[in-house]
Design a protein around this nucleic acid. Sequence first.
DNA 1: TCATTCAAAGACTTTACATATCCATAATAT
DNA 2: ATATTATGGATATGTAAAGTCTTTGAATGA
Lengths: 132, 132
Amino acid sequence: MRFTKATNYALHTMLMLVSASPAKPVSVQKLAESQGVSPTYLSKILTRLVKAGMIESISGANGGYRLSRNKDDITFLDIIHAIEGTASLFECNFVHGDECSIQAVMKEAEKKMESHLRKAKLVDLLQKGANV
Amino acid sequence: MRFTKATNYALHTMLMLVSASPAKPVSVQKLAESQGVSPTYLSKILTRLVKAGMIESISGANGGYRLSRNKDDITFLDIIHAIEGTASLFECNFVHGDECSIQAVMKEAEKKMESHLRKAKLVDLLQKGANV
DNA sequence: TCATTCAAAGACTTTACATATCCATAATAT
DNA sequence: ATATTATGGATATGTAAAGTCTTTGAATGA
Ligand code: SF4
Ligand code: SF4
């Protein structure tokens, strides 16, 4: 189990959009070029962020993507959930009693990770030198 | 990103071995049947646990698998690492400065999860009713 | 000694999903 | 109108998980 590359792209793109001027949208060409990924593929990923309500897209000349919310509210978990989905990392088809202790351990572990990702805000990384 | 089914099988198998008598090895047929998985496939998974030093295998008639360590020492993390590997969940090819803040956040989140999985011992589940 | 029982290991197939690419369509600025 | 830009569908490719098959080798016990 690994985080997908799509999540990596989404995180870096969001970091760029947070640091960019909110007035001027950034084209997917720019966003893609700096990450070494094809624009069409990145576009598909960003559409998921649009649907999650984190960014908005502007069609036409001088269009692109920009934040649609307050940048201070955007957490790592928001982005990861938008890309990877919100399903539990440990899935079991059976239901052996309503409190399965194996699932309880696994889900609690996941919660610990999510709790940290929810506290980590994108805007906190700006002063630090995370580029590309 | 999801935990693999192999991890699910490994956890359940280990739980059975912990609750079984340590003297008598349990055949892979038994272990596989109760989980609805093919014996040959489960055998491949268990070989990884053998190589990790958690269980041992006995060939020949009346053979099978049994614990090779004190059952109190076996944690969820041990099993998960043996199956999924120990590589970081978030991988990035580049190295932008020795302290990348994106990776710092992701790796710290992973640590939180691992910390919980390291505290969770298999033997603690025995009195609770986790079966199959 | 010999047949039986069991795990280990390698080759292989199948399935699922991530990672793209291509193209047609729609929206918008100039 | 025309150029520019995102969207969405279809499709292709790659890769890892999931599972099967078969051979080999180790231990038992008859
Ligand atoms: S014991 Fe829990 S994890 Fe295991 S099969 Fe039952 S419900 Fe699923
Ligand atoms: S900023 Fe960090 S995560 Fe992003 S490409 Fe550089 S090293 Fe990798």
